[in-house]
Amino acid sequence: MSTTTSQTGPPPGRAQLLELRNCFVIGPVGSRYADAGSAARQVHERTIQLFEAVIRPVCETFGAVPVRADQLTRDGEVTDQIQHHLQTADLLIADVSDGDPTVLYELGIRRGAGKPVVLLGEFGRLPAGLPEHQTIRFERSRDGLATARETLMETVVRALRGPDGSGSCESPEEDPGLLEQFVDLETDLEALSEGMATMTGLLLTIAEHLEYHGPRLQRVARDGSPMSTQLAVSRQLAAALAAPAAGLKVSAAGFAARLAHVDPTVHAALDLFRSVPPVRWNGDDRGFLAQLVDLSAAARNEAANLAAFRFILSTLTAMHSELAIPAGDIGTAVDQLGAAMTRVGAWDDRARLLSG
Results as ranks from 00 to 15, higher is better:
residue 39 A to H: 13
residue 173 E to S: 13
residue 145 L to M: 08
residue 82 I to W: 01
residue 302 E to Y: 00
residue 226 P to D: 15
residue 23 C to E: 06
residue 18 L to Q: 10
residue 14 R to H: 08
residue 236 Q to P: 00
residue 151 T to K: 13
residue 312 I to E: 14
residue 248 L to S: 02
residue 57 P to R: 05
residue 176 P to H: 05
residue 75 D to W: 03
residue 134 Q to E: 15
residue 175 D to G: 03
residue 328 G to Y: 07
residue 34 A to V: 05
residue 255 F to E: 04
residue 247 G to N: 05
residue 25 V to L: 07
residue 340 A to V: 04
residue 191 A to D: 14
residue 294 D to H: 09
residue 331 G to N: 12
residue 131 P to H: 03
residue 115 K to W: 02
residue 259 L to W: 01
residue 271 D to L: 03
residue 70 D to S: 13
residue 260 A to F: 00
residue 233 V to E: 13
residue 89 A to L: 01
residue 313 L to F: 06
residue 302 E to I: 11
residue 129 G to A: 02
residue 222 R to S: 12
residue 296 S to V: 02
residue 212 Y to Q: 11
residue 63 G to F: 03
residue 2 S to N: 12
residue 168 S to I: 12
residue 120 L to T: 07
residue 51 F to V: 10
residue 323 L to F: 04
residue 243 A to I: 08
residue 1 M to N: 10
residue 267 H to D: 09
residue 102 T to V: 12
residue 181 Q to H: 14
residue 176 P to V: 08
residue 149 R to I: 04
residue 230 Q to R: 15
residue 49 Q to Y: 00
residue 173 E to R: 10
residue 226 P to A: 15
residue 265 T to Q: 01
residue 330 I to E: 07
residue 4 T to S: 11
residue 81 Q to H: 10
residue 84 H to N: 02
residue 217 L to W: 08
residue 47 T to S: 15
residue 190 E to M: 09
residue 267 H to A: 09
residue 207 A to N: 13
residue 311 F to S: 14
residue 166 S to D: 14
residue 281 W to K: 09
residue 324 A to C: 00
residue 82 I to P: 05
residue 270 L to G: 07
residue 10 P to G: 03
residue 138 F to N: 05
residue 9 G to L: 04
residue 113 A to F: 03
residue 266 V to Q: 05
residue 349 D to Q: 15
residue 317 T to C: 08
residue 31 S to C: 02
residue 310 R to T: 13
residue 222 R to M: 08
residue 60 E to K: 09
residue 316 L to G: 03
residue 6 S to N: 07
residue 175 D to P: 02
residue 243 A to S: 09
residue 40 A to H: 01
residue 343 R to F: 00
residue 350 R to D: 12
residue 6 S to F: 11
residue 134 Q to A: 15
residue 335 D to H: 11
residue 169 C to M: 05
residue 356 G to T: 13
residue 339 A to F: 02
